[in-house]
Each structure stands twice: as structure tokens, then as C-alpha cells.
Amino acid sequence: MAGYLISDTRKVTTHRFIEMKQKGEKISMLTSYDYTTAGIVDRAGVDCILVGDSASNVMVGNTTTLPMTVDQMIYHARSVMRAVNRALVVCDMPFGSYQADCYDGVRNAIRIMKESGCDALKLEGGIEIIDTIKRILDAGIPVMGHLGLTPQSINKFGTYTVRAKEEAEAEKLLSDAKALDEVGCFGVVLEKIPAKLASMVSKEISVPTIGIGAGNGTDGQVLVVADMLGMTQGFSPRFLRRYADLNGIMTEAIGHYVDDVKNGDFPNEKESY
């Protein structure tokens, strides 16, 4: 059943991203951080894989994304790239790798692209980092924007609540989205903003919007793979739909293994040399 809706097996590119929006074809996006998971996600037909700095939470156990380093993101992105044939692979630039100045941002962007082999990078922020984005684009590196709830700024916001509910912030977000579109970003993630605003932004800009907690009016959707597969526990925001209970399945399977080892049933004669 894997990839049963996908008839086009060509590599997804940034150009095809924009084509998909123009054709009204919704874009599917999931995170992955390792070779095995990325291979499954790619074969299932996902259009875009995000090597997110959410690896900080999912893979390392940190409470925020802030501790992730350029070296760690390269490691995860390189692992993902080895497994992927079709999906567009986008890697997050981690906190501290582009905020200081545009020259630092360009150097780190080039390094991530060279050492990981990923297809594009994602940066959080709007007008404030537009010069950095422009210089990265000028270096020939595709960039995806990220507006709304930007986890790298959690200490500034102090909360993970819905962003841009007030008129002033909503107007700034729309202005930021237009600036990202005009400077040459090939897409924009809209995280945890009102559905009405996300739908408006999606209509106002020419490049695809990818929503997470932003309603159904965006051009695509993204979720953290461990969340949608039910591997994580204690995280149940309104926008999350769990498509499986891998936590339960894995716990049961591992429990059976432990029992079989303890009672001497594993390995049996057929499983021995």
C-alpha cells in the first residue's frame, strides 16, 4: 500500500514544489532524522522530508530546539540523504548558525549543503533575516522560510501558544511572508497560526505554504514523524493526528522479546547455528 497515491516517481525539486501549488496539488511533508525512518517515509510517497531541529526533542530529549549544532544537523541530514530517492530533503539551520550576521549564515549554509548533500535549507524568521536569506540564495542554495510560532525564539515568546492572533502581529506575518516570497524562497512553513490567516497568506504569495497547526487552507502539511506515528507520549496538541500507536506496538513486541529471553524460548533450535 506504500505510496499508493503516488504515480510520479520523479525526484521532487523546489521547482516541482511551486508547480504543485499552481496545479492545486497538496504537498505532504514529514520529519525524519535517520536512515531507516527516512527510507520508509520516502517509499511511502511523502513529497518532502524535513530534517528538523526538532531532532533536539525527539532524538536527544532536550526540552527546546536551541541546543542543536551545525555538526549535529549535518549528521542527521547526511543519514537521511543516504536513504531518499524521491522526496525533497530540507534541513533546518539550527539556532545560532545564522542569527549573528549574514556572512556567518552563508558560511554555515554552504557547509551544511556541502557536507550533508541535502536539497535545501529552512530558516526561521522574516524581515529581520531577509538579508541573510538573500545572500544564501545568491550562493545558489534554495531556502524555505518559517513564520508564526518559531521554536528557536521560544525564550523570546515564552510560550508555545498560537501566534498572530492579534491584528498587528498578523499584519507583520503577512508582510514577512510576502518578503520571503519576493526575495526568492521556494516555500514557507506556517506554524500554529489562525487558520483564516494561514489561508489568506497562502492566497497572497506565489510559493507554497506548509502548515502545522495552521488549518487546511495551506498548500501542504507537515508533522513530526514520531508524533504522527504515536511513538511520543504526553504531547497532544489540537493539530496532531496520530495515524498509529507505535509506542504500544513496540512496547508489546519488546515485552514479548524480554519474556522469550527470560524463559529460554529465544533463540530456539531453528534460530541457532
Rank of each mutant, 00 (worst) to 15 (best):
A214C: 09
T132I: 04
A109M: 08
G220K: 03
D104P: 00
E204K: 14
N155H: 15
N216V: 13
L180Q: 09
T218Y: 12
V183D: 04
G117V: 05
V189N: 06
I129H: 00
I210V: 13
E167T: 05
I205D: 07
D119Q: 07
P151H: 01
D138T: 08
T150W: 09
L123G: 04
K196H: 11
D92M: 10
I127V: 15
K156N: 07
E182V: 11
G217M: 13
K172Y: 03
D219L: 06
L174C: 12
S116K: 01
G105W: 09
E115A: 01
L137I: 15
V222K: 06
T161L: 07
L173M: 15
V222Y: 06
S199L: 11
D138E: 15
E124S: 02
K192P: 00
T150S: 10
G140E: 02
E169A: 12
A195F: 10
A164N: 12
G125Q: 02
I212E: 00
A100Y: 03
G126I: 03
M144V: 07
L197Y: 06
E171G: 00
K196C: 01
D176V: 03
G117M: 05
I205E: 08
A100T: 07
D101S: 10
V188G: 02
D101A: 04
V189T: 13
F186W: 12
G158H: 09
C118T: 09
E115C: 00
G213E: 09
G158A: 12
K172R: 15
T161M: 02
H146L: 01
G148M: 03
G105Q: 08
I130G: 01
S97A: 14
G217I: 13
I193N: 10
A139T: 05
I193C: 11
F186S: 02
A170Q: 06
S206H: 10
G217L: 11
G140A: 02
A139F: 03
Y160W: 06
E124H: 05
S199Y: 11
S202H: 12
V162C: 13
E182M: 13
D131K: 14
L174H: 01
K165L: 10
E115F: 00
Q152F: 01
S206C: 07
H146Y: 04
S153I: 02
V207I: 15
L174W: 01
V188A: 05
M113I: 14
R111G: 00
E128D: 14
G158W: 11
G213P: 09
V224D: 02
V224I: 14
L149S: 05
D92Y: 10
E182F: 08
E115V: 02
G158D: 10
Y98F: 15
L173V: 10
K196G: 04
R107I: 00
D101V: 04
P208E: 04
G140I: 08
E191W: 09
D138V: 10
C118L: 02
L173T: 06
P208Q: 03
